[in-house]
């Protein structure tokens, strides 16, 4: 913690600061000890907590699903297998409903996104003070538990999706077809090509941005509310954070689902000829 008795501002700032490792102009490669130091590191820094927890959740996802998949029987499934299969079939059904092309990448992509984001969001239900306090005892100054409250994580995934959109647009329609789509829609007239280009490129670029920022915004806002609730006297907090946490069970699932479905929809659009 920043001090023994931090002011509310310090407390909030502390809880919203990632554990940053990077190149500081004065200290060299090191872990940032304050948010200003982290800011001074610029682009060449990495959020250890975001990366660590997101990798942990991804590995958890792969391990869990791999375990169930390997042991999957075609007979009567166990409870865990049943749960995993329910998620699987839910995603498969969603993909089948939203994606009309034929691409064996989309299913696994959607499954990965949904479960991974869900697990990362799920970390939000861990009490806000628990992780920072625990890690402070271990000598770690900052620990922001939920990777999806870090725009780097959400925008990183969104950029990954963006790359896929570009890749499949070009692969399916050809470079010329893609260029034609960008320049000749929505107005099919050569005079309006510049106008079309501006419109289409903006809408293309907005896709990953909105995808990443929507998830980030929802998660970050929820996190801030949790922190604000934690600032209240301890005997009131439960009246607010319990309903908020229950509400967030819905939000974390919904946000994971929205991210997944939008990804599938965008990729479907990338596969379709106009």
């Amino acid at each position: 913690m920043a001090g023994n008795n931090p002011t509310p501002t310090e407390y909030i700032q502390h809880h919203l600061q990632n554990l940053t490792y990077g190149y500081h102009p004065e200290n060299g490669w090191s872990i940032a000890h304050s948010s200003t130091e982290a800011q001074e590191m610029g682009f060449w820094a990495i959020h250890l907590d975001t990366m660590g927890w997101s990798l942990a959740m991804g590995v958890l996802f792969i391990w869990l699903f791999r375990k169930v998949g390997k042991a999957a029987t075609t007979g009567v499934p166990g409870k865990l297998q049943n749960a995993i299969e329910m998620v699987f079939e839910f995603i498969e059904g969603t993909v089948r409903g939203a994606f009309h092309g034929k691409n064996s990448l989309i299913g696994p992509l959607a499954l990965t996104l949904f479960v991974w984001i869900f697990l990362m969001n799920l970390l939000k239900l861990v009490p806000v003070d628990l992780a920072p306090a625990l890690f402070a005892r271990l000598g770690v100054e900052y620990m922001k538990l939920v990777p999806t409250t870090d725009p780097n994580a959400t925008l990183g995934m969104a950029l990954g999706v963006f790359c896929l959109i570009i890749y499949y647009s070009i692969k399916v329609k050809g470079l010329g077809g893609f260029a034609k789509e960008l320049s000749l829609t929505p107005f099919n007239h050569w005079l309006l090509i510049p106008f079309n280009l501006v419109m289409e490129i903006i809408s293309l670029l907005v896709k990953p941005l909105s995808l990443g920022l929507r998830l980030f915004g929802n998660m970050f806002a929820g996190e801030v509310i949790f922190i604000l609730i934690a600032l209240l006297p301890f005997w009131v907090t439960w009246t607010l954070n319990v309903p908020w946490a229950i509400f967030h069970i819905l939000v974390i699932t919904l946000q994971a689902f929205i991210f997944t479905v939008l990804t599938v929809v965008y990729l479907n659009a990338a596969h379709e000829h106009h």
Binding site: H47, N152, L159
Partner: peptide
């Protein structure tokens, strides 16, 4: 909340997990 290398790291992690 700075945009930094984490972005790239997350993209790589995303690709690997997919």
């Amino acid at each position: 909340m700075n945009i930094n290398m984490t972005l790239i790291g997350q993209m790589i992690a995303f690709a690997i997990f997919v």
